[in-house]
C-alpha cells in the first residue's frame, strides 16, 4: 500500500522539530523514509524562527475557523518542548504564487514550507518502569489540503499520520476529535477507537470525544488503505446520532459507569443526518453457538 503514497515524496520532504533531549528517542527513518539531517530543527535555535512561524500559520489556517488555533506559547510549552513535531514540507520555490502569499512566505525565502504536521506528547500514565513512554497523546494532525485542496498531494494527511505514528515510540495512542470532524474517519481507519469520553464539558467544544487505541501493525497499514470494515474492529451494534446531545449524555454516562464503547467505522452522512457506528458492550448478548443437529 505504501507505494501508492510514494509520489508524495516527489513533492514533499519529511521534517522533524524536536528538542535535543527528545530527538534521540524518535525514529528518524519511519517506514524507511529518512528525514534528512538538514530537515531536523531544534526549536530553541533562533535561525529556525522563520520555519516555526510558517508552521504556526498553517495551524492558524487549519484550526482557526474552529476557534482552536494554537497560540505560539502553547506550541512551545505544550507541544514542541514536551513532544515533537513531524511533518511534510515542500520547497518554497515549488509553491505557486497564491500559496506563497497565503502562507506569507518571504520573497527571498527558499527553504522548506510546511504542508502538514503531526504532533504527539507523552502521557504520564503511559510511562513503564524504564525507557520512553508507551502512551502518547496525538495532539495535532493537520494538512494544508484541509483548507486549500490541491496545494499539496492527495493523501497527505493519511501519509503524515502513517509516518508520524512511527516517528514516535507509540504503543497506546490517545486523542480527541469532534464528532462532526471529517478527521474522525481518519482515526477510525486506524482501528477501533475505545472512547474515554463521548461528551467533554472540559473541552472548548463539549461535543468532543476522547479515544484511545493500542497501535499495532494492522493499524498502521489500515490508515493508508482505509478498509471498509476494519479487520480489528468488532461489528457495530449501535448507530450514534452525533447531533443528538441527549444521546451523547447517555453514552457518556455509560462510559462513566464502566461500560466499554468503541467507534468501529466511518461516520455515515445522509443529508443532514450523521451517524457513527459503535460497538457498545452493554448491548452485547452472548449467544452460545449451538451444534448443528
Amino acid at each position: 500500500m505504501l507505494h501508492h503514497y510514494l509520489p508524495i515524496l516527489d513533492y514533499c520532504e519529511p521534517f522533524l522539530i524536536a528538542h535535543k533531549d527528545v530527538v534521540g528517542d524518535l525514529d528518524r527513518a519511519p517506514a524507511g523514509v529518512a528525514i534528512p539531517a538538514g530537515n531536523v530543527f531544534d526549536p530553541q535555535q533562533r535561525r529556525n524562527g522563520e520555519f516555526l512561524r510558517m508552521l504556526a500559520l498553517v495551524d492558524t489556517i487549519t484550526f482557526g475557523p474552529f476557534g482552536m488555533d494554537m497560540p505560539s506559547w502553547v506550541f512551545y510549552d505544550c507541544a514542541v518542548m514536551p513532544g515533537a513535531v513531524f511533518g511534510l514540507a515542500t520547497r518554497a520555490g515549488r509553491l505557486p504564487g497564491w500559496a506563497r502569499e497565503a502562507l506569507r512566505v518571504p520573497a527571498d525565502y527558499g527553504g522548506l514550507v510546511p504542508m502538514s504536521q503531526f504532533i504527539a506528547i507523552p502521557v504520564i500514565g503511559g510511562f513503564a518502569d524504564a525507557g520512553p513512554p508507551r502512551t502518547w497523546l496525538l495532539y495535532t494532525l493537520e494538512s494544508m489540503n484541509q483548507v486549500a485542496p490541491g496545494i499539496a498531494p492527495h493523501g497527505l494527511l493519511a501519509f503524515t499520520a502513517f509516518l508520524g505514528l512511527q516517528v514516535f515510540p507509540i504503543v497506546e495512542l490517545q486523542g480527541t476529535a469532534q464528532w462532526r470532524s471529517p478527521k474522525l474517519a481518519t482515526w477510525a481507519d486506524l482501528g477501533p477507537l475505545e472512547l474515554l469520553t463521548a461528551l467533554t464539558p472540559a473541552h472548548s467544544l463539549p461535543r468532543t470525544l476522547t479515544f484511545r487505541l493500542a497501535v499495532r501493525d494492522v493499524h498502521l497499514a489500515s490508515v493508508l488503505s482505509s478498509p471498509r470494515v476494519h479487520p480489528d474492529a468488532p461489528p457495530p451494534n449501535a448507530l450514534l446520532d452525533v447531533d443528538d446531545e441527549a444521546s451523547l449524555v447517555e453514552l457518556q454516562r455509560e462510559i462513566e459507569d464502566g461500560h466499554r464503547v468503541v467507534v468501529v467505522g466511518h461516520p455515515v452522512a445522509h443529508g443532514a443526518h450523521v451517524r457513527v457506528p459503535l460497538h457498545r458492550d452493554r448491548l452485547t448478548r452472548t449467544r452460545p453457538l449451538s451444534p448443528r443437529g
Partner: peptide, 18 residues
C-alpha cells in the same frame, strides 16, 4: 494576554499531565 483556551486545559494539561 495569555489565558488558556479550554481545549488547551484539556489537551495540554488534563489528558497528558495533571
Amino acid at each position: 494576554g495569555m489565558p488558556m483556551p479550554k481545549w488547551v486545559f484539556y489537551d495540554c494539561s488534563e489528558l497528558p499531565g495533571a
